[in-house]
Write a protein that binds this DNA or RNA. Structure first.
Lengths: 242, 242
DNA sequence: ACAGCCGCAATTGTCTGACAAATGAAATCT
DNA sequence: AGATTTCATTTGTCAGACAATTGCGGCTGT
């Protein structure tokens, strides 16, 4: 029986949560220095290694950073989009690989989310986004490109497309969808896909984005989604027959 | 000068990364037991506390769970949608609060993503989703409801809407958008909003979802988005004048 | 007086050793 | 055979120590 929830969790977990709550609630502000490990140990009435474990938990979540030296210590970290991005990709990748998510479910989510960005990208993309998309398409057209590099270029293309919407919050939210699901999709479909067709669809998307044509971009992306799902179904069907 | 990147990072970080990579690459599979702390310490040539710090980092990311006792140890954790959900909300909340994201940017992202789900929800929603939406609308219509409870009900309504798409990957990806951004939006607009109007718009959405009308649901959600942005602009304008 | 250098103190990173707590399995007793 | 006890294993916590890093102040030489 675990009536006493306070004792059921490890001390280090409780301390980590206390500090995390202080950060979330704003009691501790960005770049503020936390008390030293020795002071925290005294404050919470535990030993220094216990405090350290708590701090390590927070560091793993990018909530704090530590620095050695005289004026060192633990500081509240400003979470950057970059870091949040990376965390989301890691989590999404593991989530998908560990829960044998249905391919069509993942694919549907990925294209639904990307289609939310495309109309904005058609209206706002900068020249740099378009140039990056064109460059990736050019890469993809080279027959000598390995499957891994084709996949990486595919991710880069869609990344540029999403970034073209000019909304960092959207780009962050899409990170998991694109960069975790796309490689999964490539892994399944690379045996059956036609690179020419994918490049042609990418071209259609880029043309519509360049022309500021939201509807055209949306329908081109939808066509790419349809093609991907068709490919996946064919692969699945073939595996079933074997 | 930090030419040697291997020594620049702390030992515990390197060990954590090594184990994490083993999990991501599939060398360690779900529910597999890791070697004991003493064995890991010997394997990596470090002391037990160092190994422990590495394990704590992984535990903080929900990659492993630990258990005391004879047959205890550290086990590779199956990340659940629930856990990933919670992590995403925490990260998104901190990201938004620490980077003074423009309100319109957050709002745009939130509605763009939700609009990606709504057509699917109109086609697939179960009776339970619809019932939950109706129940939350009924709650929101009660004048006695506090602002906090109205906000919570608002989140629950949109959550039910998103879940109605019947795609767990989508629901997970939307967690940050809905549950981190919505409270932020409520905090800004609650002084100026008309609950009646919001309830009416929620009703329009629920009606369209019930009638299997994707276009109607989309336009109703778009109207809610427009109203929210208008509210925010009014609030900002008023603050500027004062 | 000023610039550069050196050592010191503070702080985190790591190690050693130890004991407590939990927990499953084996041994023992009825 | 079943219930109970004991025990070995493993994580959780503690104490103390030393190494590595780094900013600061004082010292020294000119």
């Amino acid at each position: 029986m675990k009536t006493d929830l306070e004792t059921s969790r490890a001390l280090s977990v409780q301390i980590a949560e206390a500090i995390r709550d202080a950060i979330i609630s704003g009691t501790l502000i960005v770049d503020e220095r936390l008390p030293s490990e020795a002071e925290l140990a005294a404050k919470f009435g535990v030993s220094r290694p216990t405090v350290r474990e708590a701090l390590k938990r927070l560091a793993a979540q990018n909530l704090i950073r530590t620095q050695r030296g005289a004026s060192g210590g633990a500081f509240v970290n400003r979470i950057t989009f970059e870091q949040a991005h990376g965390q989301q990709i890691t989590t999404s990748t593991l989530l998908l690989s560990m829960n044998d998510v249905d391919f069509e479910t993942a694919c549907e989510a990925r294209f639904a989310l990307e289609r939310a960005c495309v109309p904005l990208a058609a209206l706002r993309r900068k020249a740099a986004h378009l140039a990056r998309m064109r460059a990736e398409i050019a890469r993809q057209a080279r027959p000598a490109l390995s499957d891994e590099d084709f996949c990486a270029s595919d991710v880069a293309f869609h990344r540029a497309l999403v970034d073209g919407a000019g909304n960092p919050v959207l780009s962050y939210q899409l990170a998991g969808a694109i960069e975790a699901i796309e490689p999964l999709m490539n892994m399944i479909t690379f045996t059956a896909r036609s690179r020419e067709r994918i490049v042609a669809l990418h071209d259609r998307i880029a043309d519509a984005i360049e022309g500021g044509n939201p509807e055209g971009a949306d329908s081109a992306l939808a066509a790419l989604g349809d093609y991907t799902i068709t490919l996946a179904r064919n692969v699945m069907e073939r595996r079933r027959r074997i």
